[in-house]
């Protein structure tokens, strides 16, 4: 590929008492690209996302290797520099939307907090615009709500709005649709597509749902036992999987769909 990646990762991660979780993971994310990261539970997907934001130390992990963001090495960056980057150039959307919002702060206030973290200008116009983009109401009544007054889907939209407020170059989404029902899930996936299209945001979309990933992503990386075992377009992954593990993953999905529950094999 001739394009310079916006994000280029080569990582080893250890947790104290757990040992090596990521072992030489290599990933490139092209500008405007949506890269799906698939792997089974515990394979280290979240760890990778956190490591890119340099938040691993809060969870007791340590990393080595290289994280190049727009040509800058993040692994040596200070906490202060990282804080300027987080939510501004690289942002994160977590799996459980309701728990990720401050329960004692109104929605509007939270959006302004997210804005104010990186800008001294009046963010009202941007916030309203972004809210419209993610198909959220912009009226007072909505902005005055507390998180507990939101549905999961609305909450996830709020989080996505906060994540793209500063038009980041990279959006890390850690299983953003797992907690949602099928319909909401579909609309959120649509939203990611839209954000990608409108703002040209590159995304690392973490999921264990291969189908969802296939419908959204330009490329898919398969994470297995701390390593990327295979990378390819959805078509390549589904039609000509090269790695044994990828094949197991792919085979696990479509065939099971119409089986009766009694015969499900785990």
């Amino acid at each position: 590929m001739g394009i310079i990646p916006v994000l280029s990762v080569m990582l080893n991660v250890d947790y104290s008492g757990k040992g090596r979780v990521l072992n030489g993971v290599c990933l490139d994310l092209a500008p405007g690209e949506i890269l799906g990261l698939v792997g089974q539970s515990g394979s280290g997907k979240s760890t990778l996302a956190l490591s890119i934001l340099r938040l691993l130390s809060f969870k007791g992990g340590s990393d080595s290797g290289s994280i190049l963001f727009r040509g800058n090495e993040l692994l040596g960056a200070s906490e202060k520099q990282m804080r300027k980057l987080r939510g501004n150039q690289i942002s994160l959307v977590l799996q459980s939307p309701l728990a990720s919002l401050n329960p004692s702060m109104r929605i509007g206030r939270q959006l302004f907090e997210a804005w104010g973290a990186h800008s001294n200008e009046n963010g009202a116009a941007t916030i309203m615009e972004t809210l419209r983009q993610v198909n959220l109401p912009t009226d007072e009544a909505f902005l005055n709500r507390y998180p507990r007054q939101l549905s999961v889907g609305l909450a996830q939209r709020v989080l996505i709005a906060m994540a793209v407020l500063h038009r980041p170059a990279v959006l890390l989404a850690d299983e953003p649709t797992s907690a949602l029902d099928a319909l909401t899930q579909a609309s959120i996936l649509d939203l990611f597509r839209k954000v990608n299209r409108e703002y040209g945001t590159a995304m690392l979309f973490v999921s264990h749902d291969l189908l969802a990933v296939a419908s959204l992503c330009h490329r898919i990386a398969i994470l297995h036992e701390g390593q990327i075992v295979e990378t390819g377009t959805p078509r390549e992954i589904f039609e000509t999987p090269r790695h044994e593990y990828t094949r197991t993953l792919v085979n696990a999905i479509p065939t099971l769909r119409f089986e009766t529950p009694e015969r499900v094999q785990v």
Partner: peptide
Amino acid sequence: SDYIFQAKAMGIAPSR
């Protein structure tokens, strides 16, 4: 909690 983590990931200053 997740919301503190989320706040960190949004780059919100510690005192705030």
